[in-house]
Amino acid sequence: MSFLEVKDLQVYFPIKGGIFNRTVDYIKAVDGVSFELEQGKTYGLVGESGSGKSTTGRAIIGLEEVTSGQIFFEGKDITDKKAKNKNFRKDVQMIFQDPYSSLNPRKRVLDIVAEPLRNFEKLSKQEEKKRVQELLDIVNVSTDSIYKYPHEFSGGQRQRIGVARAIALKPKLIIADEPVSALDVSVQAQVLNFLQEIQKELNLTYLFISHDLGVVKHMCDNISIMYKGRYVEQGSTKDIFENPQHIYTKRLIAAIPDIDPKNRDKQFKFRQEVAKEYRESYDTYFDGDGLAFGLQSISNTHKVALPEKG
């Protein structure tokens, strides 16, 4: 039994039209995605904007309606909204991309961080305040600031308040939806390192959603690359970075800047090769609609979307 298992997940958004406002077509935001996640590990979902990576995360936690497919958490089917009971709500939390809009501007830090506690635990005012201060201590935000409002904090501090809220119930899985992309580069590393620290401390599992391969390489054990709602490649971090198979993955990797001048020639050559391969063998990697094919295993850990052979 795996910790989190997603089987052939599809999330379609209807397009309304016509005289009666009926559904005329669908946008296939997530189109047949499957993966498994082990406890204590970090799983990266990478893709450009609109690739369906955020929708996948939001569908798992229940912010989007699942069109078809199944989601199992600790062996229990939690695909249906009604199946997402109190325990699931407690065990799975989310960190949002934008630290400016994910905290209610009208609430004090105390109220924000205590919101999950109030939903699940009956604490006295004193206990609640103590817990909130402990949590703020964990995320390195001054414990005096519980009566402040979100606008009085910087982006990095706000994101850490968001993290404090997410870990308040001691969850098992945290879905981190681009947790650092709205932050200054200087603050990004700080927040990422901090996420890794609390992962060890609290034995957390992350589903880490990002468009930034560099960040993902730093954070994740396993990575999936998404393109237009489908997987193009899936494997361990080593598989993806050292042995990329799909042209889309290669292009993403080729685009990562390398600051070491010694590697400049090598990098340049790699980019040229990738560009050439993309021009010449686009059809081997994408079907007639420009979508990725089904996944084929090329090793125990590594799968690539290629047309079926034979």
């Binding site: 949002f96 999950p116 939903n119």
Partner: peptide, 17 residues
């Protein structure tokens, strides 16, 4: 649609609240 309301959902807050 703002994240703070979405966040409340993931925190298990009831629709009424």
């Amino acid at each position: 649609e703002l994240d703070y309301a979405q966040a409340s959902k993931t925190l298990g807050t009831s629709n009424f609240n």
